[in-house]
Amino acid sequence: MVLDIDKISKRYKDKIAINRFSVSLHPGVYGLLGPNGAGKTTLMRIVCGLTRPDSGSIFYGGKSIHDLGEQYRKILGYLPQNFGYYPNFTVQRYMEYIASLKGLNRNFSKRKISELLEIVGLQKAPKAKISSLSGGMRQRLGIAQSMLNDPDVLILDEPTVGLDPTERVKFRNLISTISQGKITILSTHIVSDVSYIADDILLVQHGELQYFGDVQQLTTAVEGKVWEVLVENQQANKIAQDYMVSNMHHTSQGAILRIISDHKPFQQAKAITPTLEDAYLFHTGERGGEL
C-alpha cells in the first residue's frame, strides 16, 4: 500500500506551517528531519488525521484518509511527542486500555500485549505503575502501544528525545526491528538517529519538502563542500559568523573547525568526507557554529 501526501498546506493565522507538501511513501523507514518549527509535528498530525489540512489530501491505497475514517485508524500506529497516561495505570492496564480503543478484542489483545512487552523489554514490569518507569522505559511502552494493532502506517514523533545514549541505541534497534513491511515515519532533529535506521530522508524546512531521497544521495550532494581547518582559538568564533561551521573543537594547538562551504574557505583547509549532519546543515542553511 502507498501513502500519498498530495499538495497539503496548513496555515496557523499568519504562519505557514506546511506549504504544498507532496510525497509518495512506500513501506520503509522515513526519517523526517528539520529544524524546530519546520512543520514536522503539523505534518505528522495531518498524516494521523488529528489535524485537517487547509488544502490538499492524503491517500492511503488510493483512498482519501478522510473517507477511510476509522478504517484508516485501524491500520495506524502513533506515538506522539509527549504521550500521557492516567496516573493509576500500570503498564499492563495501559496497554489493555489502548488495545480496547484500537478496537481489539480481549483474547487478541492479551496475547499481543505480552508479545509486545517482550519485544520492548518490559515483560518483567507489567504491574509497574507507569509513573515509576524511567524515560526510556516509558518511550518503549509508547512504542509498544503504537504497535498493538499491527499498524501498516507507523508514525513516531521525536521518539528518542530525552533518552540517554544507551537507551537511544536500544530504541533505534527496536524501531528497526518492528518497522519491517510498514510505512514508518520517524520525526526527529537528532540527525544520527535517522542516519542509522532510515531508508529515506524527508528534509523539511519552512513547511516545504527540501529533499527526499536516501542518506547516501544527501551526503553526496555536499561532497567537496566540507572542510576541516585548524585555526587559532581566538579566531574560531569570528569564522563561525562568516561560515557555516558544523563542528568546533578547541584544543591546545588551536580550534579544529568543520566548515561547510562551496569554495575552499582557507588555504590550509582540507576537504573531508561529509556526514549526514553536514548535509543537513547545508540543506537547511542552519549555522551550527553560532551561539
Partner: peptide, 18 residues
Amino acid sequence: FKTQFYNMEEIEAACFFS
C-alpha cells in the same frame, strides 16, 4: 475531562474508536 488533563487526547484520537 480526564483525557485532557492527562494528555491522552492525541493517542486516543488516533485510535479506531473516535
